[in-house]
Design a protein around this nucleic acid. Structure first.
Lengths: 206, 206
DNA sequence: AAATAAATTAATCATTTGATTAAATAATTT
DNA sequence: AAATTATTTAATCAAATGATTAATTTATTT
């Protein structure tokens, strides 16, 4: 009612459209496209179901918007680093691992969401990743080749991403085994330094 | 019509129940529970839709049977090796990587299927993995601790599984980048020897 | 062979679910 | 303020979908 409140409200609250998109992100990410109900999303957003279609036309269109954002988020950590001419290979390793682990501790089910939706709908989504040539000719790959010409550079990329992302992909299985959220987080923090070290080791040892 | 044909048919063909289970495995694995239609499964199996419910009562019961089999298949590669008192740590590394890669080249979407269904339904499924204590006290973990007491043994487990499983989880993204199925398979065959070597390196280098 | 049980099918049901409509309310423009 | 446009809601629709039923065919038992 007061000016204060008005301003606070304007800053804190999201528009209806944003609320729906936020809710859709939560529900789609948790349940996947097929298991998500538009009614779940409407409820999560605290809006009437019809509004979802008013703003986004259909479940599929809403999903595509959410998915595009998630793909950007997941690959946005990687792509800029890969083509940075100004950093060494070692710096790139540290950046990629550090950036990913920091981001994924906040959004742990991002990788499994993106990858499992790509699997269940390869035509639509895999095409959106025009990484192809882009990655193969990246600075990062060239740096790897220069360091170890005897082993295909993709091996090291797989190792880096596997060691970094897999613990999040398998989190529902690993976390209880490790002994809860705090231990899990601690282990992941340790890996920010450990993984780049291990990759360097692989690159240097004959 | 001939005796020959009869015998061949009896040996090659599956019972209706088995056909449905096979088809359910294919459809559920490709699409996930939510995106799979019981009609898809019936069609894949070449049977009438009603037969699915005649044999399995419901989509959910059928899914649980398929999922239990898949969980067994995915963890069956790991668990027996982990508790083998008769093999060295190094032998275990080779067995786990070799067994997994061989199996996953035939069933590449097994890990993402199991892990993404666990994510979208943690209560039901995560409980089925009573690995907890079992894994933490396994021979494998003890051998890791004995070799490197300064680093939590789960780090090495994550590395082993991450490097081995992640390339399959991300296959839809990686395979096109690598340059098709043949190249992908070749890289994976190389990793059977490379991964155990890298893990040994991590364990030995100070 | 007759009777009984098991397997299969076509048709249908009931619910869920994505989407729409028409009316009501709120905001903006004239 | 009146008119217009944008937003929101309750009610409803139509299609998809999991499941069932009753009848038919096939296999097994008596």
């Amino acid at each position: 009612m007061t000016g204060m409140a008005k301003i606070a409200k304007a800053e804190l609250d999201l528009t209806t459209e944003e609320k729906i998109k936020e809710a859709a992100g939560i529900v789609f990410t948790k349940k996947g496209y097929g298991n998500a109900r538009t009614r779940d999303i409407a409820e999560e957003a605290g809006i009437n179901l019809a509004l979802l279609n008013y703003y986004f036309r259909s479940k599929e269109k809403l999903f595509n918007i959410v998915m595009a954002e998630r793909i950007d988020k997941l690959f946005g950590v990687l792509v800029p680093v890969l083509n940075d001419e100004s950093t060494t290979l070692e710096e790139k390793l540290e950046q990629i691992t550090g950036n990913y682990i920091t981001m994924l501790l906040e959004h742990p089910d991002l990788p499994i969401f993106v990858l499992s939706e790509i699997r269940s709908n390869p035509e639509q989504l895999a095409s959106r990743l025009q990484a192809r040539q882009q990655l193969a000719e990246s600075v990062f790959i060239k740096q790897l080749k220069a360091k170890r010409s005897d082993i295909h550079p993709f091996h090291f990329l797989m190792n880096l991403l596997g060691m970094t992302l897999f613990p999040f992909i398998a989190k529902p299985v690993l976390e209880p085994i490790i002994g809860g959220e705090d231990n899990y987080r601690m282990i992941m923090e340790q890996r920010k330094k450990l993984i780049p070290g291990w990759i360097k080791m692989m690159l240097e040892t004959a």
